[in-house]
């Protein structure tokens, strides 16, 4: 069913040229992500999970193979504003208030003032930040800043959300909370989400599909379809079904020699 494929990669490869020789960041990646899926990419540092996400976003150029987003090239997809991207850091502009930060993509894409106001209100409600419109980023906690950056990615209604370890810098308590909120948000908006993480519980808790990757060269070693229900309370993480999937992810990581010590 290629029509419903949001992201489709065939034999995708990416090699960085550095002073110390070539580094194979991605090698022979084959993957199809369908509409409405929540896909997690998991693996140790250097496995290419972030690189793959950046390639989808046209922030990196693949050196071999093909990659399409909604049937378009990554460049066309970027220019048609097909996705929202959430970075590891909130990357909110400190000279703009929260609402102005969320308005940033809307201004660039030429939305009218009225549309901007309406979308700001909707997305701020969606991430539970109402009441903080006039605050500056540096007046908020790290978790709230990251929520604002998610709101910014949602503001222009792209169907695809790319998230690169968005909660990596937050403590576990905040992270649990934001994870369950993200699931609710996904359920409500029906978006397709690609989510990079290096936490096994986080990947299993959130995903419908888990892509296990391993380094040197960066490649996909396992793709696990999760049969957990869409409705997931936090304590689902103690159920045998959850633990079974987590065990399979761990197995996949081990098979890819991902537990080897880094040689660097």
């Amino acid at each position: 069913m290629t029509t419903s494929a949001v992201v489709s990669a065939q034999n995708l490869g990416l090699t960085f040229k550095t002073n110390d020789g070539d580094v194979v960041a991605l090698s022979d990646v084959n993957l199809t992500i369908d509409k409405g899926e929540f896909v997690s990419f998991i693996g140790p540092s250097g496995c290419g999970k972030t690189t793959f996400l950046r390639t989808i976003a046209d922030l990196e150029r693949p050196t071999s193979g093909t990659l399409t987003i909604n049937g378009q090239t990554p460049d066309q997809a970027r220019k048609s504003r097909a996705y929202g991207y959430v970075f590891q850091a909130p990357a909110l502009y400190p000279w703009r208030t929260i609402e102005k930060n969320i308005a940033l993509p809307l201004e660039i894409m030429g939305y009218s003032q009225a549309q901007q106001a309406q979308r700001i209100k909707r997305t701020m409600d969606l991430v539970n930040l109402s009441g903080f419109e006039k605050k500056y980023p540096w007046q908020l906690s790290g978790g709230m800043q990251q929520r604002a950056s998610i709101a910014r990615a949602l503001a222009f209604d792209a169907d695809l959300l790319l998230m690169d370890e968005p909660f990596g810098a937050l403590d576990e308590i905040v992270r649990d909370h934001l994870n369950s909120e993200l699931l609710k948000l996904w359920d409500r908006t029906q978006k397709t989400i690609c989510f990079v993480t290096h936490s096994i519980p986080e990947a299993v808790y959130l995903s419908t599909k888990i892509v296990v990757m391993s380094p040197r060269p960066g490649r996909v070693t396992d793709i696990i379809e999760s049969d957990l229900p869409r409705e997931r309370p936090l304590d689902i993480r103690e159920t045998p079904e959850f633990l079974a999937i987590a065990a399979r992810v761990r197995e996949g990581l081990r098979a890819g020699h991902s537990y080897d010590e880094d040689h660097v």
């Binding site: 976003a57 922030l59 590891q88 990357a91 940033l104 660039i108 894409m109």
Partner: peptide
Amino acid sequence: SSAIERDLMRTYAA
């Protein structure tokens, strides 16, 4: 401006 901030503008095709 940081690399991340510039990447952000790129994702908006600014």
